[in-house]
Design a protein around this nucleic acid. Sequence first.
DNA 1: GTCTATAATGAGATAGAC
DNA 2: GTCTATCTCATTATAGAC
Lengths: 200, 200
Amino acid sequence: MPEQSTRSKIVGAAEELFYEHGLRSVSVDAIAERAGVTKRTLYYHFDSKDDLIEAYLQARDEPTIERYRSWLGADDRPMPDRILHLFSCLADYARQPNWRGCGFTRAAIELVDMPGHPAVVMAADHKKRFESWLAGAFAEAGLENPELLGQQVVTLTEGAIAQILVHRDVSYARVAGQAAALLVAAAATGHGAARHREAV
Amino acid sequence: MPEQSTRSKIVGAAEELFYEHGLRSVSVDAIAERAGVTKRTLYYHFDSKDDLIEAYLQARDEPTIERYRSWLGADDRPMPDRILHLFSCLADYARQPNWRGCGFTRAAIELVDMPGHPAVVMAADHKKRFESWLAGAFAEAGLENPELLGQQVVTLTEGAIAQILVHRDVSYARVAGQAAALLVAAAATGHGAARHREAV
DNA sequence: GTCTATAATGAGATAGAC
DNA sequence: GTCTATCTCATTATAGAC
């Protein structure tokens, strides 16, 4: 299928360049050049740059969730250990020199003044899916308040990614992982989290 | 001092526009127009747009830290309560319709492919100052491992801001605040955090 | 110190041939 | 479906008068 091949070459080029440099600083010309096609061909497959941005995020959606799924690992260890492992994998991943944080969060921030933009909507949806997946894993593990815990762990993940990106220091992943593991442990024993929530 | 007045009018316009719309999507023309001066006058006071971006962040640096200082409040209550109050104030603040997250983090993300850019350096410095201030407050309160706790609370703050921005849902501030208060409480009693760290 | 006017460049998107 | 060539517009930055 030659049509698909050209289109996916363009999406691949968009993924590389948008993720590395950001949305606004990458031109359509640059993407066409990297894909080895002319701009006219690119505009044959995509209506606009915004359309291309949407395809870029779409391509990253499921693979990103799947990566976290593999980092959490199977249900054969205590959840605090699995969470520690997830953040440890995040640290390793962020050590790659071309790591640039979360493409979804970055897109939402770059397009912060365009609330209805498809990329902004997709970013929010993606984060919600990630959070729901976490809450589901916590529920399966029999923890208290899995939804709250999902929100807290997703928030720690977001914070760790931002801090690693700003300081170029992966140790924030470990620090965030310890915090997340503590919250999870408290929800497992019934100590701490539940008691504290009542006080709020 | 008429010179200062023009310059500060320009910086004020830059603050409003850069914070609301982002760095790359705001033109120098727009800033000059908002400031009520011509572009030539702007370029008399600033060498370049990058210079203006630097001035924008410089102007926000101290006021931002001071705002968090006031949110934490005085040392007359238990630290977990003060932390809860800080995040509660963040929620109120983020409810403002023109709130757009943290200008420093957003700048670092928009300029992610320019590691040496003055604005990127300033963003990192600002976050470090915020973290140091938090660690100092935790140390004064006699908590265990104030540095680690500072890193964790700063990470929760960053994560909460990102999540609020992406979902336009301020409840993440409360959720993050509860997590932070739990970590702080564990460091106060000596339970949990210290024990867990040994296990890692 | 501030103005009007104008480079000089790069961007997104399109025309029309093959 | 892909190409060469071009349009149109916005952007950063500057020239030179007052």
